Structures are given as structure tokens and as C-alpha cells.
Simulated assay, not measured.
Amino acid sequence: MSSYISRNPDILGGTACFVGTRVPIKTLFDYLESVSSLDEFLEDFPTVTSDAAVGVIIEARDSLLKDETAP
């Protein structure tokens, strides 16, 4: 279980959000997809810490690459 992501049916209908916020994880990826910087995202969403944003990116990378790194 991620220490950066929470899902609560009472918060945004269970959308994956950064823990302790109402900021959807998808918003981070939308920013990055639109070529905005991580710093811009963090500036626009001050309730999200840099550690949390980077942690989510690392978890996504690890999840996508887990089969490629298996022996």
C-alpha cells in the first residue's frame, strides 16, 4: 500500500488522491503531460509535498517496470 496515495469514497468519490489532501494523483500526471514542471505543480498545489509527488512518480515507474527488472 502506498504511503502517498489514499482512496476514500467520501473524498472525490474515491478518486486516488495525495494523502491528506483532496488533490487527485491524476492532476500531477496531467501537469507533467502538458509539459508543466514538477515545481509548477507543487506551486499550484501547496498541500502536496515534494516528497509525496516524487514518491508517486517513483511508485508509478516501479509499477510499470517491475516485470522488466524481474530476474
Rank of each mutant, 00 (worst) to 15 (best):
E33F: 13
M1R: 09
L38R: 05
S63F: 11
T69M: 11
A53P: 04
K26T: 07
P24K: 09
S3T: 04
T15H: 02
K66H: 14
D51P: 00
S2H: 01
L12V: 00
I58Y: 11
S37W: 10
T47P: 00
I57H: 02
I11P: 00
T47E: 15
D10K: 11
R61F: 13
D44R: 09
I25Y: 03
I5S: 01
E43K: 12
I25R: 03
L64T: 04
R61M: 12
R22T: 14
T15A: 13
N8D: 15
I5F: 05
I25C: 07
D39T: 08
R7K: 14
I57C: 10
F18G: 01
K66A: 11
S6N: 01
I57T: 03
E33C: 11
P71T: 05
G55T: 06
C17W: 01
S63T: 08
L32M: 15
V23Q: 01
L65I: 09
A52S: 14
R22K: 14
L12D: 01
I11D: 04
G14F: 09
F18E: 01
E59Q: 14
C17D: 03
T27F: 02
L38M: 14
V35P: 00
D62G: 07
D62L: 13
G55S: 10
I11T: 13
I5D: 01
R22C: 08
L42K: 04
S36H: 15
F41H: 07
V19D: 04
V48I: 06
I11S: 03
L65E: 13
L42S: 04
V54P: 01
P9K: 08
F18A: 04
E33W: 12
T21G: 05
D51G: 04
M1Q: 05
D44T: 01
E59P: 05
P9F: 06
P24W: 05
M1L: 07
M1S: 10
T49E: 09
E40G: 06
I11E: 02
P71L: 12
V23T: 07
F18H: 02
I57V: 10
L65T: 13
E68V: 09
E43R: 11
S34V: 00
I5V: 15
I25F: 06
F29K: 09
I11Q: 03
I25E: 03
D62C: 11
L38K: 07
D44H: 12
T27D: 07
V19N: 05
G55A: 11
T47R: 08
S2M: 00
